[in-house]
């Protein structure tokens, strides 16, 4: 009996913690349907009737769906490039002995510790020299060189891909490129998927770099568009509209999370064990 009560209390606490995780989002959803005046005068769990009004205020100011679409245009190619080229690089570093292999690996280790903002000024100067401002290229192409992902995949390949497999393929006359695509890729796919989903979330949430590089309204990614909330007196005078904007902005990533939570969970877990 005491055992059951204790267990019950534990479950209760776990659920309470789960609620704490979701409460801010619940408050957000409810407040998104209420008028600014209602929100400051008190709280209730009953949704209000101002959703339409808030919606109009928000979309009068900016088109969040355009921002979401732009974020897709940046995040998806960046993620695919990151996944493909990181695997390629990791495989190259893990299985081939060539001059400079160790140097490249050393540079990767070093750059994993470098704060991103260290290169911000130089990065922008470079982009303008190459006429890449307002282009998605500087947001997408650098994904080819993701030191963290390469590092992780290299370790994974070393531990899970037997050398004999590749050697056997060579004896059969398979080309190196063929081996990579037909033998290596399927084996490392789960690891790539987990890294890929994290890369996607990182790209999706990225704020500082797109904020500096993208100036055209119709090219702004979601977080950049969200930050322009501060520029609007119109929307700021209504808390309900702010809540609604935040709510709309997090829906896509929530969907991704629901669909890929398995990979996300295993990615985080993998980080712990691999170390």
């Amino acid at each position: 009996m005491a055992f059951k009560i204790k267990k019950g209390i534990l479950y209760f606490l776990l659920v309470l913690l789960a609620l704490t995780c979701m409460l801010p989002f619940a408050l957000m959803m409810i407040n998104a349907t209420r008028t600014g005046a209602d929100i400051v005068s008190g709280f209730t769990f009953i949704p209000g009737k101002a959703l339409k009004e808030n919606w109009d205020t928000v979309f009068d100011y900016f088109n969040l769906f355009k921002g979401i679409w732009n974020s897709v245009l940046v995040s998806v190619p960046a993620t695919l490039l990151c996944a493909y080229f990181s695997t390629l690089t990791a495989y190259g570093l893990a299985f081939y002995e060539f001059k400079g292999n160790k140097v490249v690996f050393g540079a990767i280790l070093a750059f994993m510790m470098i704060p991103g903002q260290l290169s911000l000024i130089g990065f922008y100067q470079l982009c303008t020299k190459l006429h890449l401002v307002n282009s998605y290229i500087p947001l997408i192409i650098p994904a080819i060189a993701a030191p963290g992902t390469v590092f992780f995949l290299r370790q994974y390949i070393l531990s899970s891909l037997p050398k004999s497999l590749i050697e056997a393929a060579r004896i059969d006359g398979a080309s190196e490129i063929y081996s990579f695509h037909k033998i290596v890729t399927p084996i490392v796919a789960p690891a790539v998927a987990t890294m890929g989903i994290m890369a996607f979330i990182g790209n999706w949430n990225s704020y500082l770099l797109p904020m500096i590089l993208i100036n055209k309204t119709d090219k702004m990614t979601l977080p950049v568009m969200m930050a322009t909330l501060k520029a609007s007196n119109h929307i700021n005078s209504n808390q309900g509209a702010i809540y609604l904007s935040v709510a709309i902005s997090i829906i896509p990533i929530l969907l991704v999370f629901v669909a890929f939570s398995k990979y996300i969970i295993s990615s985080v877990s993998a980080g712990a064990i691999k170390e």
Binding site: L88, T89, G92, F95, E97, I144
Partner: peptide, 15 residues
Amino acid sequence: NNWGYAFVAPFVIVF
């Protein structure tokens, strides 16, 4: 092993 250069090259250039 020379294939290693080819595999690592895109990374190194972008990097």
